[in-house]
Structure formats: C-alpha cells, structure tokens
Design a binder for these strands. Sequence first.
DNA 1: GAATGTGAAGGTTTTCACAGCA
DNA 2: TGCTGTGAAAACCTTCACATTC
Lengths: 227, 227
Amino acid sequence: MGESGQQSASIERLKPQDKRRISDSTIHRLSLYHRLLGELESDGTKTVSSKQLAELQRLTPAQVRKDLSFFGAFGTRGLGYSVSDLRKKIAEIIGLDRRWNVAVIGVGNIGSALIGFKEFPNRGFDVKLVFDNDQRKIGSNHKGMRVSDIRNLKEDLKANQIDLVILAVPSSPAQKIVDEVVAAGVKAILSFAPTHIDVPPDVYVRSEDMSMELEYLTYALVNNPGK
Amino acid sequence: MGESGQQSASIERLKPQDKRRISDSTIHRLSLYHRLLGELESDGTKTVSSKQLAELQRLTPAQVRKDLSFFGAFGTRGLGYSVSDLRKKIAEIIGLDRRWNVAVIGVGNIGSALIGFKEFPNRGFDVKLVFDNDQRKIGSNHKGMRVSDIRNLKEDLKANQIDLVILAVPSSPAQKIVDEVVAAGVKAILSFAPTHIDVPPDVYVRSEDMSMELEYLTYALVNNPGK
DNA sequence: GAATGTGAAGGTTTTCACAGCA
DNA sequence: TGCTGTGAAAACCTTCACATTC
C-alpha cells in the first residue's frame, strides 16, 4: 500500500484518479471489456454504449461506466464510446500497449499446452523460454521451443529479461522453484501447481487450480438443484 | 432466485443455515481449505485451528470460522477442528463426496492437456468422453481415450450421464457447441474459449481465459512499480 | 486456558438516480 | 433526446470482539 512507486516518466500512464485501490473485479472486467472491444473492432463496429457493452457480458451499464470512471472519462455523452479509442485506453491501463516475455516452467500436460497456445502471441505474450528437469526432455524440441535445463533457471530468466513466469510443475517442487524465480527478479507468476505459493510482497502470484474450477461447478450443482 | 429446489431426500445434505446466498469467495475458500486439509491429513496432522488454517493460506482466522459457520459448527471450542472430519464435511458441502463424469470437447492444446491430467481422478473427476471435429483425430487414441465424433455429442453426453463438460474449442464454434451441450441436459460447463458464453439460468458456466489471467499480472506490474 | 461461533461494526463494491453535456 | 459520469444509497463481505464451550 501507500504512496510509494512513482511512475516511469517515459510513459504517461493512465492511472486511478483518486488514491483508492482498484478492485480485482474491476481489473478483471476491464480485461473482459478489452477482449470484447477487440471482437467489436473486427466486426467493424465503430461506437458502443455502456448498455451494449454490459449486455454482451451480462453486466449492468452502471457497472461498466463506474469501472471506466476510475481511470478517466472516455466516452461522449449522448453517444457512447469509440470502440477503437476505448480499446486503446484499456490496453494502456492493463499494460497491453507493449509485449511481454514469458517463460514456462515444466513441460508436462499443462506446460506443453501453454507453449503451443496460439492465443498468447495474439494478446501480447511471447513465450521465450521453456524449462524442465527431465534429462530426456532437455535439449529436445517442444512445439518449436528448445527445452532448457531447469538448473540454469535463474541465469536464463535474467539473461532473457523474462517478465512473467508460468509455473506448470507438481506441488512438491513448486515452492523451491518459485524461490529461484523470485531470486531472478521476476515479479509475476501464474501458477498451476495445486498448492499455496509464498512470495515476498512485491511479487504477484495468481494461482490456477483446474480441479478447484470444477469444484465451483459441483457446488452449484449440488446446492441449487432447481436454481 | 427464490425458494425453489427442494433437496433430494436420499442424501441429507449440509446446506446454508440461513437463506442468504453463499458468496463465490466463500465457496472458493472452502475448496482451498479442502485441498489444504488433504495435505495435512497426508502429513498425519490430526487437529487444526482456524489460526493455522488461515496462516497457511494468508487469510484471517475469523474469515475461516465465518466461512464454515454458514454451514454449521464443525469445531470444538478450545481445541480446533479434526482434520479428517472437517475435510469430510467440506467435501460434502462442495459435492466431493461422490465422483463426477466429465467430457472434454476439443482435443487441441488445452483439451489434450486436461485429458491426461492426473490430478482430476484424484479429486473425484473422471474424464469419460473426449470429442473433436477433426476426422484425423476421431477414432484415434489420445492419452488412453478414444476420440469421439462431435456429431454425436448430444447422444453421447446423454448416454454416458455426463455431469460436467470442459469446453476447449476456439471461440467461433463455442456458442453453437454449448447450445448442444445444454440440449443434452448438462448443467455445468467449464469453458476455455476466450469469449462470452450464453446459457439458460439453470446452467452454470465458468470461463477461464489464460490470457486474461496473465493480464491481471500485467496490470499489477504496470501500476504498482514499487508496491 | 484455548479456540470456536457469531452478532455487530467497519469496509468495500455495486446499483441507483440524476445532473450535465453532445 | 440519449447516454455519460458520479455522488449517494444499498447490498455485500470481512474483521472485530467477546460470550461460550471444552
């Protein structure tokens, strides 16, 4: 928290107008708007209202306007928003006005899926490095990527200026690997290991547990039989 | 909403004590507790306090107790909770006291990763069917599963009593396939298609967009340089 | 003494409703 | 007239603090 962190001067960034922290849900929805605006742009749609933006995602117009209002006033009263302008603004807010270097650790089921994931480059993410600890995999080609030895993790992450790490390893070695990743100076980790990951406060972790996603649904099935 | 949905009489289910809807965050944390209790059980830990349960996940003890209190009183004052009892209770709440039949639609990158995902059977999910529309894949073996023709989707889902569908297809055909799935009577869908999915109100959808997960992190990187 | 279970307080997020502008 | 931008109200969620129980 607090008033730390002056922005790099080179980019005049859109940031929250007041000092209030922006909620996770708002960030999530901004991402959603950004994705939808991309679809609309491809369709050739020029302008869009908060009402339309909301309906297409099952949200409320007020919600859409409030989310955007934290960062500025991007619309035109009586008219709505310019699809391409709004998309650019949101891209700037969530950091999609640049490309990001990604490393994938673990070339098992999920790891190899993500390496071959065509959506990533379209959305600004370039998988630059791939690691494993299995001698049979190291050096081999996996969907066009050469698999590196995890023993060189720290050095390779630094040398290649990796911004984001995707962790696709079992739970048992996960924390130890994360410690290495943190030591390499990486500040953002997307983990698929089904266990809690501990990091210093200046490092961001997002944990994805596929089974937990399904459990959400089973809860709903079991508890809302009719809905 | 409303008072619909009497429970099936055969299972005496733990349900919310008051009529207030349980929040998504609570369900998510119950899943987390369940996972952690599993680890503790393997370690041979017999009892656990809300304080411990909280610290291991970076939550507060009050939060843990409140979450549980919506469903009953499972602890012993002065002592804490029995690891194995609490785990069983939570399993019952989120529907993990039974097994679930899953179908995976789309045998691309993510689809095939999930088919081979060993964590699923450990957590109660059995992948029973796998579909694709690619003639070269249909009939072939993918990680031990025979790939079915998506043209028989509706019939096969019904015949095999599929509870949950995992959708791992591109955005463009996603909605059409979902309509089929819904017509087959399936009430829960986990979608990896990076687009909004529309379903009737008695069907539950959870959407996972890998790029959006990364975007969360880029927002943090760009906006909290020092944190 | 130790830790649960829970009303009440405090904080955050969403929705409302309308002033203001194209 | 139509739709944005935004304070204020309402709903919701988390934390506090303490009576209660083992």
